[in-house]
Design a protein around this nucleic acid. Structure first.
Length: 193
DNA sequence: GATTGGATCGCCT
DNA sequence: GGCGATCCAATCG
């Protein structure tokens, strides 16, 4: 029995709230090589107002267009010449906000992840935004993909107590470095750092 | 048209 | 902890 995918109404809310609520949900990706899935354990919120670290902070461009589209779709971009980053579009259409998925706890398809990642240890499979995209096979083909549908979707997972969520500044940005918009599950070994 | 810097990762010291 | 790889979109730094 697979849990049903989350509906757009789940994502159509305040982006900080969505970033917290996504912790504990299940990200699933199927391919010809088999399924791979993990519990989301680390997220970051990127806001349209007062957030110069956000790709959408200066208005719509070709790259960030998905962020201004309907909530519950993917925003996938290529970075540093070698990695993909996977985001979930949040808030209302036209706003331009998203949640970066930074780490997963692997739950299905670990052998497939090991082959894709060329790494053996579970802690090295999905403990970073580029790593989890490689482990699940997420690339630019999934940009704007509706996350209710296979082969890439998000379903309800674990119930997370609010006290189990830690907030810190975001990783790897050079602007708005003081804002605590990163969220992760306390003591989870798959968090990126 | 050219330059710049990046929501990263893995290897090196 | 530091740094190079390697491509691309945004900006003209």
């Amino acid at each position: 029995m697979k849990p049903p995918p989350l509906e757009p109404s789940f994502y159509r809310r305040n982006t900080v709230s969505a970033a917290r609520a996504l912790l504990g949900t299940l990200l699933c990706c199927e391919s010809e090589d088999g399924p791979a899935a993990g519990i989301i354990v680390e997220t970051e919120a990127y806001l349209s107002r007062n957030d110069p670290a956000c790709h959408a902070s200066r208005g719509p461009t070709r790259r960030n267009a998905p962020m201004f589209g309907p909530p519950g779709r993917a925003y996938v971009y290529f970075i540093y010449g070698s990695h993909f980053c996977f985001n979930v579009v949040t808030a209302s259409p036209g706003v331009g906000e998203a949640v970066l998925i930074r780490a997963l706890e692997p739950v299905e398809g670990l052998e497939l992840m090991r082959r894709r990642r060329r790494r053996t240890r579970a802690a090295e499979l999905t403990s970073g935004p580029g790593k989890l995209c490689q482990a699940l096979g997420i690339d630019g083909r999934f940009n704007e993909h509706d996350l209710r549908r296979p082969p890439l979707w998000i379903a309800a997972g674990r119930k997370i107590a609010p006290a189990a969520v830690v907030s810190t500044p975001r990783i790897g940005i050079s602007r708005a470095v003081d804002r605590e918009l990163r969220f992760y599950l306390k003591d989870n070994r798959y968090v990126s750092r």
